[in-house]
Simulated assay, not measured.
Amino acid sequence: MLKVDIDTKMKFLQGFSHKTRVQILESIKEEEKTVSQIVEELEGNQSNISQHLACLRGCGLIVGRQEGKYVHYRVRNQLVRDLLTMFDVVLEDVHKDIACCDSHID
């Protein structure tokens, strides 16, 4: 198995470190959507959503498919979908501890 350095891991995890990015991932977890569809679903603005989509692409979590003038975004693959599901499974177990955590160290 490829050994991944800690900086690469941190860049990957950064994709999950913002509420809007997690909302986008959940929005496209099961089906691809255009920026307009994501903006409408999240009730956000296109510029902000587009910036977060660029981050998610840069982190390797999503891919885009051009169709005419629209780009359709989807979660990269089943492994990323499984990871999102695993987050939910783990969070069910630790949610009480997380709720009590008010110290975040950078």
Rank of each mutant, 00 (worst) to 15 (best):
D97L: 01
R57N: 13
V63R: 10
R57Y: 08
L91W: 01
E30N: 14
T85Q: 07
H104L: 03
V80L: 03
E43S: 15
E26A: 06
T34E: 04
Q23P: 04
C59F: 07
I6Y: 10
V35K: 12
K11T: 06
D88I: 00
S103W: 04
Q23N: 12
G60S: 09
L84E: 01
G15N: 05
T20M: 13
D7L: 09
D97P: 00
H104P: 00
N77C: 08
G68H: 10
V39H: 03
V39E: 11
I105C: 00
D97S: 00
L56P: 11
L91M: 07
K11L: 09
D97K: 00
H95I: 01
F87L: 11
Q37C: 03
D88C: 01
D106F: 02
I28N: 06
K33D: 04
Q66G: 11
R76P: 05
K29T: 13
E26S: 11
V75N: 02
L42C: 11
E43F: 10
Q23S: 12
K3C: 08
V80E: 05
T34W: 07
K11R: 12
E32F: 09
L42H: 11
L84Q: 00
S47E: 14
I28P: 02
D106I: 00
D7E: 12
D102H: 08
K9D: 02
S47F: 08
L61R: 14
F12V: 03
T8N: 07
E41Y: 15
D88S: 03
D102R: 08
D102S: 06
Q14M: 09
M10T: 13
D106E: 04
L13D: 07
Y73T: 08
K19P: 07
H18V: 04
V63S: 12
Y73A: 07
N48Q: 11
E43W: 12
K69E: 15
V94G: 01
L2C: 01
E92H: 01
H95C: 02
T85N: 09
H52A: 11
I28W: 08
L83I: 04
H104I: 03
K11P: 00
I98V: 08
H52C: 12
E67Y: 08
V90E: 02
V71Q: 08
E92F: 01
